[in-house]
Design a protein around this nucleic acid. Structure first.
Lengths: 235, 235
DNA sequence: CATTATAATTGTACCGGTATAATTTATCAA
DNA sequence: TTGATAAATTATACCGGTACAATTATAATG
């Protein structure tokens, strides 16, 4: 692990353990430099990372402060790799509806940037949180990149497998959100009535080299869906 | 304007003018260094900024590439300051429903981190896009920070006024999203039927020094609401 | 021709420095 | 005590360097 990532992780742990609140001040740069025995630029890099993650904010001339929000039970829209730590207190399970290899539709081929003759893995799942339906998810994986999937993998964390099992590096993703009403099929999967509101999210996941490897369509149960998002200035 | 911001802006213009597409390669670091006559770290800083904004992605050993998505008409959830450039082709207007100074509720005081006796500006607006209702918005401004508002300001861009008129620096924001059904009042403002789906977003805006200055509740017309979001790795 | 080893390319990590801008604290005057 | 002014604190901009890791291009090999 890189120094600046390690330091960022340690600072995050420190904030967590000390239960620091919004506005609490961290040691100044010079102190952190001495404490971790690295140069200023490395500390700065760690802090920039934490700032990007929404853990701290820095004020020139003043200091480095903890950034916290008070609300619990919200899912971070930006936790790229499935539902990370936000819901770690909750029981997350999946039921696999379907898993097969097939050819892409035009829509899928376009989003994955592949040809109509190429193979994809199709995965359909219902995901549960504390026994309640959370979402219905259809995913399309470029088989040239995600070379193998089976039911065991798919019922656990696919992204964990992609990173650790396949050794691929997940980069960035583009998400498209819509609000609409459930159709019959979706209502059925989510145990809601047709016409109930839904959040519908399409995401294109890319590797660090820019190749799209996963196009997914997720329909959320509006009763379980509380999302949060941290934005920074100059965006 | 800072060098690295200036360079980032110029690169963005360059990408725009040349109509570069996803995956197109930019000149290599060394070339950019020479071209802009700055050090490597300044160029790197510019590129990191553009990467954060979702304009480019960098691949070690390979190059710097343009990041683009194909879909039009989506509102960026992260454009902090109202609806920025995403909708610049569209006609955006506002109707002010209410504007007054009042005392906060407990909820508002809590989110703005002020006392119940402090003053706030209350602003209610309906916003239109191409003549269609886009959202109903209620905002609560800490009057100690946003010292003055009037109907002219409020019917235009409030954030523009906050930056340029008041000289304040907008920092980060926390957003909380819910999906639900419209109540009667909201339906009335948005010209939709009660019970129709809605996206409901609460946002707390902070200055760069961490002070919350604006707590806002926005209810979106689901027919007009298409949002996009760009996420990066290690978040 | 395919495969493997090697070299060249290219971005990233990390160092350590100077200068500067924003903020806070201390000092002084009224 | 207040308000202005100066000084100290603290993060940020920018420089320029070395070493390194990931990728890509080239050469060698069978």
């Amino acid at each position: 692990m890189l120094k600046y990532q390690q330091i960022a992780a340690e600072l995050e742990t420190y904030i967590e353990e000390k239960a620091l609140q919004q506005g609490d001040k961290l040691p100044i740069l010079e102190t952190l430099m001495a404490q971790f025995e690295v140069s200023k630029s490395t500390i700065t890099k760690s802090l920039d990372l934490l700032e990007k993650k929404g853990v701290v904010f820095q004020v020139r001339g003043s200091g480095i402060f903890v950034r916290r929000h008070k609300r619990k039970g919200y899912i971070s829209l930006l936790s790229n790799q499935g539902f990370k730590s936000d819901l770690e207190d909750y029981q997350l399970t999946s039921k696999v509806i379907e898993l097969d290899v097939r050819k892409p539709t035009i829509e899928v081929a376009d989003n994955l940037n592949i040809g109509l003759g190429d193979d994809i893995y199709y995965v359909a799942r219902v995901r549960y949180i504390n026994g309640q339906t959370l979402c219905y998810e259809e995913s399309y994986y470029n088989k040239a990149l995600i070379t193998y999937l089976n039911k065991e993998i798919v019922s656990e964390s696919i992204f964990h497998y992609i990173r650790d099992g396949l050794g691929l590096k997940v980069g960035f993703s583009d998400m498209f959100l819509h609000v609409d009403q459930l159709n019959e099929e979706e209502a059925n999967y989510l145990h809601l009535r047709p016409g109930a509101p839904k959040l519908y999210v399409e995401t294109i996941f890319h590797l660090t080299n820019g190749q799209p490897f996963d196009f997914s369509k997720v329909t959320y149960n509006y009763e379980q869906s509380q999302f949060f998002l941290q934005a920074n200035s100059s965006m």
